[in-house]
Design a protein around this nucleic acid. Structure first.
Lengths: 126, 126
DNA sequence: TCCCTTATTAGTAATCGTTACGATTATTAT
DNA sequence: ATAATAATCGTAACGATTACTAATAAGGGA
């Protein structure tokens, strides 16, 4: 009896591998392009479906940077992001001190987590 | 001679008024529904076009909460948002101490601004 | 006030990232 | 090996947003 309702497929495994290695926060289309070599018959729908499954499994994160595309991140540890307003690249920022406790003092809502995005100009564009 | 390339229209004025009063971060469709009474012939495209113009003018803010819809906010002062994972409502959080200086110490990118979203359960759902 | 220029509008079609569907294939438990 | 059923590919559909077009209207100048 398999407790897991999901099966293991080469496609999903490869998508996860790419996201664990690639720190550039690729889109579904980026991942599709990378996989086309190894899987010439790959369908874009397969990429989207597996990305949603991996998010549901908590193995990857979906990120929204205001772009029309969704971006994905294999790093599920808490970390902030930096978006360059010139080249539009998205960089990871290291773990920094959390301010949830401080903010919790100011509201009656129960805060569980937070996402922080920093904007500016990246060191390459400076 | 008008320095401003934009003209004043009742529709755009009304969209801005709604956003200045409405703190619920409405979508384009929400705004469209509210205006239909006063402007029966209003086109949804007009709402979208004016929202983009108002963002360009810096009079409103476009927000992304991971939903498929874009949300708009008439409050352009710096403030954080709280998203309830149950009712999906988005609340404003008051201005809190900024941590940009602290984060700036950890990176070579030039940070100019930041956006913070907090997630949890709102006081109504608790 | 009456033009004239052109931004804006309403209505509709197109765009495009994402999701859904259906027949076929592949995984996994027995 | 077989049966049950996820997963796949290919394609169609979906839906939020944008683009297009002819008609309208804002607003500056005569």
């Amino acid at each position: 009896m398999n407790e897991n309702k999901y099966r293991n497929t080469k496609q999903r495994e490869q998508i996860l591998n790419i996201l664990l290695k690639d720190k550039s926060h690729p889109t579904a289309s980026d991942i599709y392009d990378k996989m086309k070599v190894q899987f010439p018959d790959l369908s874009l729908g397969t990429v989207y479906r597996n990305l949603n499954i991996l998010v549901e499994q908590g193995k990857i994160q979906k990120l929204d940077f205001g772009s029309t595309y969704d971006h994905y991140d294999g790093n599920c540890c808490y970390h902030s992001h930096f978006v360059c307003r010139q080249c539009k690249k998205v960089y990871d920022l290291g773990c920094i001190e959390d301010d949830i406790e401080k903010v919790q003092q100011t509201t009656n809502h129960k805060i569980e987590s937070c996402l922080k995005k920093y904007y500016g100009v990246c060191e390459n564009c400076l």
